[in-house]
Design a protein around this nucleic acid. Structure first.
Length: 375
DNA sequence: ACGTGACCTTT
DNA sequence: AAGGTCACG
């Protein structure tokens, strides 16, 4: 049976691309509530589904390493769902880096070097992590405008926005209302298992593609999701999928990428289960709207606590008006990449990452030489 | 246009 | 009560 890849074991073929940890931190970026499709399968190794393929990612100080599994490693389903031909034994990548067998045994025979595939997969990663955006430069600009950001970003470097598939992003985010990350994780997993195409199985874990719009739109879906403990969100998912297909078409969501922020936001808000917060999340996380700032109760706390944000003091809930005001406040402070800045502070406030704040400068001594002094 | 509850499920 | 939305007043 196929197993999850581990870099040090050398049992699988790995490839890499140059990427400093200050530009990308997998542990923070993949577990901060943007995507619910990744889990840590070994220390520092993250396995998940992206672009219809199963990946394991890990990183060293200067490199992002990746292994892509063959979808046909799945045993026991039909064979007509494969998007990917059997290419599993490349021994060398196009940049000449090798990491097969590490320092250990080398059982596998070299077969072929398919640099077309290499290029395609590397490009998928660059797109998904938006590596064209230079995070170091962005942090520097944001830190200059906002001392609090600078303090937080010092510890939480490498948090970046994913560029997710719009369908996956929208329907995952509809699940998030009145909910916690841990529970959403399970819900999305059950959703894919019930309605998505199987891709492969690794160490007792099966991986599934995210369901298609037509699968989500089927009339039987609401009852199915009720059974899977989606509660009142079950009908939101089915009705939104149906509404998109009936009144807009398959390409509509992706088309919102080339539409201005507020227009895309309003379009999303016509869908059941999609209000201000979810619409802004989808805009930011999948539609290239870097200025979208999702406002939830948590972000509201941050505004009040860290920025002395006074408006709406006696309020119980976030009204439309308050939502607009807080969003504008942050956009004015941070500029066109306000959404990216918000994600850093949001991540830093997650309870799972609190311990990072306690341990002092243990490993960041070297890269901060260029900065001016600080207390 | 702005401000209150009900809503599924789990801690 | 929780990382919200919808349907009223």
């Amino acid at each position: 049976m196929a197993k999850h890849a581990v870099l040090s074991s050398g049992a699988k073929m790995w490839r890499s691309l140059a990427c400093a940890k200050s530009e990308l931190r997998l542990d923070l970026t993949l577990a901060c509530g943007q995507s619910f499709r990744w889990r840590e399968t070994a220390e520092g190794h993250w396995t998940g589904v992206m672009g219809g393929r199963v990946w394991t990612l890990t990183q060293t100080e200067d490199s992002l390493w990746y292994h892509v599994y063959n979808n046909q490693e799945w045993q026991g389903e039909g064979s007509d769902r494969k998007r990917r031909a059997g290419v599993s034994l490349q021994m060398e990548n196009k940049s000449g880096k090798k990491f097969k067998g590490a320092l250990k045994k080398e059982e596998e025979e070299p077969v072929a070097v398919t640099s077309v595939q290499d290029t395609e997969e590397e490009e998928m990663l660059r797109d998904y992590f938006q590596l064209n955006v230079k995070l170091g430069d962005l942090y520097k600009e944001l830190g200059a405008a906002d001392p609090h950001f600078k303090r937080i970003a010092y510890i939480f470097s490498g948090v970046r926005m994913l560029r997710q598939d719009p369908t996956e992003c929208l329907f995952s985010l509809i699940c998030t209302s009145n909910n916690h990350i841990s529970r959403i994780h399970g819900m999305v997993e059950r959703l894919c298992q019930a309605l998505g195409a199987p891709l492969c199985q690794l160490d007792q874990t099966s991986y599934y593609n995210f369901p298609s719009l037509s699968a989500l739109a089927d009339n039987s879906v609401e009852a199915c999701l009720r059974d899977l403990r989606f509660g009142y969100r079950a009908q939101f998912l089915q009705k939104s999928a149906k509404q998109i297909l009936d009144t807009h078409g398959l390409q509509w969501l992706e088309g919102l990428r080339s539409v201005p922020y507020l227009q895309a936001r309003d379009a999303l808000r016509t869908l059941p289960g999609v209000g201000n917060k979810v619409a802004d999340c989808v805009c930011l996380m999948s539609l290239d709207k870097t200025e979208a700032v999702p406002i939830d109760t948590h972000v509201w706390q941050i505004a009040k606590r860290d920025y002395n944000y006074a408006s709406g003091k006696g309020q119980k809930t976030i009204t439309d008006k308050l939502n607009r005001e807080i969003g504008d406040f942050f956009r004015q402070l941070w500029g066109p990449y306000a959404g990216w800045a918000q994600s850093v502070l949001f991540c830093a406030d997650l309870k799972g990452f609190q311990k990072l704040k306690e341990m002092p400068q243990l490993k960041q001594a070297k890269k901060e030489e260029t900065d001016e002094e600080e207390d």
